[in-house]
Nucleic acid binder design. Structure first.
Lengths: 245, 245
DNA sequence: CATAGTAAACGTCAAAAAGACGCTTTATTT
DNA sequence: AAATAAAGCGTCTTTTTGACGTTTACTATG
């Protein structure tokens, strides 16, 4: 009995990494390989998201976590399933080329897209065999398939989510300064914030905990370090709905 | 060549309808039919969401819209794709029964779940062949498959979305009173709101437009009618991001 | 036709949050 | 020791929110 897939299911991962030094929100992308029908390998000058088939006995969430772990070695990273992409022709490409990792290139492929939030520094790219590279969200390279659209939709979702939940702290180191937080908001949202008002607002949050530590190795006045207490946050907001339409 | 699907793709639609009279948020569900292997039809005492296979040349969005139109006759209804459900065993059920509409019952089925927002009164259930019925979100019947989970996740998403965007007006008639809006929020969010403060706040929004009309046929002082101006709203909020973490 | 009843609609005051902006402090570099 | 530059504090005003008392306008009823 010949088995023929008529549908292919994958996950794609938009890995967001924030870099505190450059104040840049980055996306982790991999160089795309193609091979011709004759089997020669061809390097195509574009990038794609990491993604892979969903295994037979795997949940979608597990699949996304697996893909991330294979690429970065990281587990327990903030993850959000944000949209499914499944246009009938979404993977159409050069007809004589077949994506090396995907023998089902000509099938309809539905992908469940996730995004992850982590610190750029957390990922050790050198130990990776793959041609992974960070790109600023503002300077994306040529992207294969519909991956630019996927990234931009992830970014939109992230921006909105940023304003509702304290996910900014997923992107920042455990110990951060008030200005780190402000910079992250400014960079991600593309806005300017008054430092003095922002400071006051943030310091007054009970879940922003002042540490007995200051920055070291800075060439100006070292700033106070803080941490985010998820415990306190969760206790404060066990369902607080505020109408703000 | 035998063709065997190893994966089944469907959309499921959570149709939310708000009833201004009963102040209840309802979900449209259909009685589930099963048939045994011998071909007898059996009525199972539970309900399911409307959903169907995604056709070969159809986008996911189109598929959801088609399913809604087949059930309700309605088009151009607020629609949101909110999550994909694809656990390997998510459609497991009684082994000797096969869902009448789904010959792929034993396959892994990934469903892209949408919710729709409309007015309960808008749907004429009588002209429907299907056994569709409205249920209050607070009094759901026994549900088949994982559809209770899907509904509850849709509801959670709706509650959050409600607080960000003016989607409440998708659930209300074109002409409504201030109290209608308050009732809808209270019912959907399960909260109490002070009428005088809510009133002030809502009336001050430029996109809440007072009409030259009042309620008719009420046995008390008839209330002023208002409408929601999407035009004005859109002009006001062409990206206003407010940090409120 | 007056009156009672009820929901609609308006108003006030205080507390809290947001916005704008000036000034001081402190560690480091020169 | 002075200069520098970012960190950090303070003040004043405006806006928003929250709590709650009062008035108005329509229908129903006697």
């Amino acid at each position: 009995m010949e088995i023929k897939k008529i549908l292919n299911l994958s996950v794609d991962c938009v890995v967001f990494g924030y870099d505190t030094d450059t104040k840049s929100l980055n996306v982790l992308l991999i160089k795309r390989y193609l091979e011709t029908k004759s089997g020669d390998e061809v390097l195509v000058d574009d990038y794609v998201l990491t993604g892979y088939h969903v295994y037979e006995n795997e949940t979608l969430d597990d699949s996304a976590s697996r893909v991330l772990e294979e690429l970065t070695g990281l587990t327990n990273i903030y993850k959000k399933q944000f949209k499914a992409f499944g246009d009938p022709n979404r993977l159409s490409g050069p007809k004589d080329l077949i994506w090396i990792k995907n023998e089902d290139f000509n099938l309809r492929t539905v992908t469940i897209a996730y995004y992850f939030l982590l610190k750029t520094e957390e990922v050790d790219l050198k130990k990776n065999i793959s041609k992974a590279k960070w790109f600023s969200i503002n300077e994306l390279p040529e992207l294969g398939f519909d991956h630019e659209q996927i990234i931009l939709e992830a970014y939109e979702d992230l921006k909105i989510k940023c304003l509702q939940d304290p996910i900014i702290f997923e992107l920042l180191p455990d110990k951060f300064t008030i200005n780190d937080v402000q910079d992250a908001y400014q960079s991600i949202l593309g806005i300017e914030i008054d430092n003095r008002n922002f400071r006051r607002k943030l310091i007054n949050k009970k879940y922003i905990v002042s540490l007995d530590e200051k920055q070291v190795g800075v060439s100006k006045k070292p700033a106070q370090l803080y941490m985010f207490s998820k415990d306190i946050y969760d206790k404060m907001f066990q369902k607080n709905y505020l109408i703000s339409i």
